[in-house]
Every structure is written in C-alpha cells, then in structure tokens.
C-alpha cells in the first residue's frame, strides 16, 4: 500500500489497459456494454443452463407485469376518479379549477396506462442473465442500468419465489443471498419457474463446503 497522503502529480491521465493478465479478461467478449442476448431463456431439457450464453427472461413476464400494472392502475385511478368526482360535484369550486382537476386526473391516468403497458416491455428488453461455471451475471434496469456479478462460491442461499400472478404464468423470481452488505440480496424476476429452478440448482450445487 502506498502513501495515502501523497499528492497526485500532474501526470497526464492514461487510459488503463489490462496488459498484465489478459486471459482473465475474456477476449471473446470485447464490449459488454450493450450485449445482444442471443437466446430466449429456454435451453431444452438436456442442456445445462451454465453455458455462458446471454439470455433474456421469459417473454410471458411482460404479460404478467402488464396485468399487475393494470391492476395497480385500476386501484389508483379508480380512487383518483372517486376523489375527483367528489371534489368536482361537491366542492363548489369555480369551473376552471374543476375542469383542471379533471384534466389532471385524465392526464395521470393516461400516463399510468402508458407506463403500465410500455414499462414491462422496456424492462424485459433491459433484463438478461448469463450463467457460467463461475457464477451468474444479471443485467437489469431501464434508467439505472446495472450489471451484477455473483460468484457461486459467495452465495449463502437462494430463494425461488412465486407470487399469485407469477404462478398463473409459471414464472418465478430468483433471489440470491450473499454475505455482502449493500447488495446482500440480488434478485432476478421474470424467469420461467423451470429455469429459475435450474439456475438455482446450478448455483448451489457447490462443493458442499460449510467452513465459513
């Protein structure tokens, strides 16, 4: 470890290149910024999921997410409609304000419709995963795009959870627990249940080493 207090000289900032140990860098994947997942998630029954191929989650997850979005929208927008209706009918406010109130409700509902319909597709396009012998790599997030790597040897335990809607579409969420602090749980939603189980089995089929 070198000095903490040392001043940083005026040397020109150099682009860092990995020259020391290039084979750790996987030259087969030169740019990983925006990978194009080559396959949908299914692997067939015999093939292992741990083949290092970038996969998308189940397309059905779009439908499931849309339905849950619509349900949420129905509740929110319905509540908003009742409140707006009451205010418009009973408040005795001037007409322009009442009209504006209705306008706001209509706008929010339209925006909600667009979100409920469009967001799941955006999310699906931005969600992918890659499992290999070393562990799992998860990409997700529409605005904040994350790539998370969890090695198999760091996984404490995993959950596969299914909500009612997910059960209907045979989907599942894989939840990975590590001993970490900030990202102690990493989840991947929208997998088909079978794939989630496959990934789980692969991830926790360790050497059975319990020596923490």
């Amino acid at each position: 470890m070198s000095e903490a207090g040392e001043e940083v000289g005026p040397e020109p900032p150099q682009r860092f290149r990995f020259e020391t140990n290039p084979n750790l860098l996987r030259p087969d994947r030169p740019s990983t910024l925006e990978p194009a997942p080559t396959s949908e998630e299914s692997t067939g029954d015999s093939l292992s999921i741990a083949d290092g191929i970038e996969r998308r989650v189940a397309p059905d997850s779009i439908r499931a997410d849309r339905i849950s979005g619509w349900i949420a929208l129905l509740v929110l927008s319905g509540g908003g409609a009742v409140a707006t209706g009451l205010l418009v009918a009973l408040s005795g406010w001037p007409l322009p304000i009442r009209l504006a109130l209705m306008g706001v409700w209509a706008f929010l509902t339209a925006a909600g419709l667009w979100l409920a319909h469009g967001w799941p597709a955006l999310q699906w396009r931005r969600t992918s995963f890659r499992v290999d012998a070393g562990g799992i790599e998860i990409r997700k997030g529409v605005l904040w795009r994350r790539v998370i790597n969890v090695s198999r040897s760091r996984i404490q335990h995993t959950d596969v959870s299914q909500g009612p809607l997910q059960r209907r579409f045979e989907l599942a969420t894989l939840i990975i627990h590590t001993a970490g602090t900030e990202h102690a749980t990493v989840d991947l939603a929208g997998l088909s249940h079978a794939t989630a189980l496959k990934i789980r089995d692969h991830l926790i089929s360790g050497e059975g080493d319990d020596a923490v």
């Binding site: 990995f18 860098l25 996987r26 990983t32 910024l33 070393g134 790597n149 040897s153 001993a179």
Partner: peptide, 18 residues
C-alpha cells in the same frame, strides 16, 4: 465493464472464507 469482468473472475476463482 472490463474491471467488473476482471473482478468477477477473480472473485469466482478464489474461495471466500469469513
């Protein structure tokens, strides 16, 4: 990205002990 891949590989090839 390349740092992430490098660190993830390093993590995957080492064993974690508390």
């Amino acid at each position: 990205e390349s740092l992430r891949v490098r660190l993830a590989n390093e993590a995957a090839t080492t064993r974690f002990r508390w």
